[in-house]
Design a protein around this nucleic acid. Structure first.
Lengths: 188, 188
DNA sequence: TGGGCAAGCGGAACGTTGCTCCGCTATCGA
DNA sequence: TCGATAGCGGAGCAACGTTCCGCTTGCCCA
């Protein structure tokens, strides 16, 4: 918001940032979010210094690429609560959205829970954005006595996120199904 | 079994293998199963070549360190089934055992599900050993109409394993609790 | 007992990664 | 036009897994 009027950035810098975002998105799709930084720089046709100047950590790059989708997921929460037959139904559908997002981003779920240094920013962004939404849905469902009331939003979010890890690499494992089981286990 | 009588190994080789197992176990406790190979070699006071000769991949080393505990967990399955009030109760208690094992091994759950090359052996060993046990318990519980019957053992095992990832690094997340929710979700 | 030799050892070296640093280039306001 | 400087590129460093090969040492046999 406060950046609106500032003309601080040079034209080539703005162009490179856009190029990098596109290249990163493409590489993430084919090689996953843990693709080597060199690959992304090569795909964008820029040097590695450029990547690190625009996105100091890999987490910043991932956030920039997926920000829109995460925000959309957050905004869907209240809408679902208003339009669904019951709070539990809204919760179920919102979690479905979240899971759909996660399982289509190769390796994102894994990196989200990883305790490797450098990904705290990513973790924090997801939590800041989605935790309040999840908490709201949980509260509503708990208040309607549809689910047990001894669960924190963070526990549910981490549980669901964890269940999505490796969903793409093993055809015998169906993350959506297991998340369904978990959510069923929430019922009173 | 067939190795019993063979005297193929030299005395120093056998000594080094034991030393390495002890060192690895100690390092795994303090630094997790992803500790640098160099650290383990240093702790054991041997060269890196020695580690790779005895344990060609890191997975082999991890398996060797935890083999006893995994086997014990596998053996506990039938016993629990015989001694519990119901198949579901046996399943619940067996999963508790498995979870206890996983959450006390820093980083093991993560590496178990990781699709990084080199860990297939580990994955395979766990599955070969524990999957039949889990399947037996699931079948019994399904036959007694205590749980839904549309779940494969591999799905449950992976789900439980996934829920245990990062259990040690975030005090707000309780893997045992979420596994409890998942298992509750299995009920008919 | 001691000589020979292969099993076994150690660690230098290589490839791959994340990340930094600095000399050069290109932009843009004056 | 022009020079200050934002921004760029990629060489270079450190940490890691893994390989490779010359040397050491335990063991068998004469």
């Amino acid at each position: 918001m406060s950046e609106e009027g500032t003309k601080a950035k040079r034209a080539d810098a703005r162009r490179n940032e856009k190029t990098l975002l596109d290249a990163a998105a493409a590489v993430f799709v084919t090689s996953g979010v843990e693709a080597p930084v060199r690959d992304i720089a090569a795909k964008a046709g820029v040097g590695m210094g450029t990547i690190y100047r625009h996105f100091p950590t890999r987490a910043d790059l991932i956030i920039a690429v997926y920000r829109h989708q995460v925000d959309a997921c957050a905004e869907a929460g209240p809408e679902l609560l208003a339009s669904s037959d019951s709070p539990y139904e809204a919760l179920r559908r919102w979690i479905d959205l979240f899971v759909d997002f996660l399982v289509t981003k190769h390796g994102l779920a894994a990196v989200l829970q990883s305790d490797n240094a450098g990904f705290e920013t990513l973790h924090t962004y997801f939590l800041d954005t989605l935790l309040p939404v999840c908490a709201r849905l949980l509260d509503a469902a708990a208040e309607a006595d549809e689910i047990r009331s001894d669960l924190q939003a963070i526990e549910v979010m981490r549980g669901v996120g964890n269940l999505c890890i490796g969903a793409e690499s093993d055809p015998r494992y169906n993350a959506r199904k297991m998340v369904g089981v978990l959510i069923a286990g929430l019922r009173t």
